[in-house]
């Protein structure tokens, strides 16, 4: 218990003293996670909508792969991205391994299926009569989509929250493809692992508080957006 208390004090001290490194790690974490989730959202929601609304041959297979992807262990994603980005690998010439871009790629791979899967599930649940009613009201294709997105906003924000949770929590792939390089690819989770292995539990605990605070703030924002009061 004493350790947690010490860690808490350390966290406050590090934050208050404006420890530049901690600040940088936190910003990198934010930048990496938010970029990844932004890309996943921009790609994932339209794909989820397409899969959810339309029936086409191969839909079932695609959904199976999406569902497998939702449970894909991040280190598996990390391994394949590492091999892809190796100097000797197919994308080696891009020099992306051990950069934040590589971490973002890995995080997109693990969060995209979640967003596609949960979005398509939400759209599959829309009453076909509702679809017809919206069409009948004279909505253009785009307007139809906007209305449907509004109707499914609870589920879609839940999808984004779930994706973000996974991305913030992820460590294995970030370690593998990012390399935990100081001042560069070090993010909160990888530096926690490192601090633990160095025996600096107080620093690790401090980092965990920062990570939890971030997760809390972001989830809080999204949840309050999701649960905005209904005017009854």
């Amino acid at each position: 218990m004493g350790l947690i208390y010490e860690g808490f004090l350390k966290a406050i001290e590090m934050l208050l003293s404006g420890d530049r490194e901690i600040y940088e790690i936190t910003l990198t974490t934010l930048r990496v996670c938010l970029s990844a989730i932004l890309v996943s959202t921009i790609i994932g929601i339209p794909l989820g909508v397409l899969i959810g609304l339309h029936s086409f041959p191969g839909k079932k297979i695609i959904l199976i792969f999406v569902n497998i992807g939702m449970g894909l262990p991040p280190v598996v994603a990390g391994l394949y991205i590492t091999m892809l980005l190796w100097r000797s690998g197919p994308l080696g010439h891009l020099g992306l391994l051990y950069t934040t871009h590589a971490i973002i790629m890995a995080q997109i791979v693990v969060s995209l299926p979640i967003i596609i899967g949960l979005t398509s599930a939400a759209f599959q649940q829309i009453d076909s009569k509702m679809l017809m009613q919206i069409k009948a009201l004279g909505a253009t294709k785009l307007q139809r989509l906007v209305i449907l997105l509004k109707e499914t906003k609870l589920a879609i924000l839940a999808a984004i929250i779930a994706g973000l949770g996974r991305v913030l929590a992820e460590v294995g792939a970030a370690m593998m493809v990012g390399g935990n390089i100081r001042g560069d690819t070090r993010i909160l989770t990888t530096s926690m692992v490192m601090e633990v292995s160095k025996g600096n539990f107080d620093v690790a605990i401090a980092l965990s508080f920062i990570l939890m605070t971030l997760a809390f703030i972001i989830t809080f924002l999204l949840t309050s957006l999701q649960q905005r009061k209904r005017r009854v």
Binding site: K129, M132, Q133, K135, A136, G138, I147, K150, E151
Partner: peptide, 16 residues
Amino acid sequence: RRQLAVAMQQSLLFDM
């Protein structure tokens, strides 16, 4: 399409 208005059997109102 906008010349044809339909009220379906179920009211199907929106969350607004």
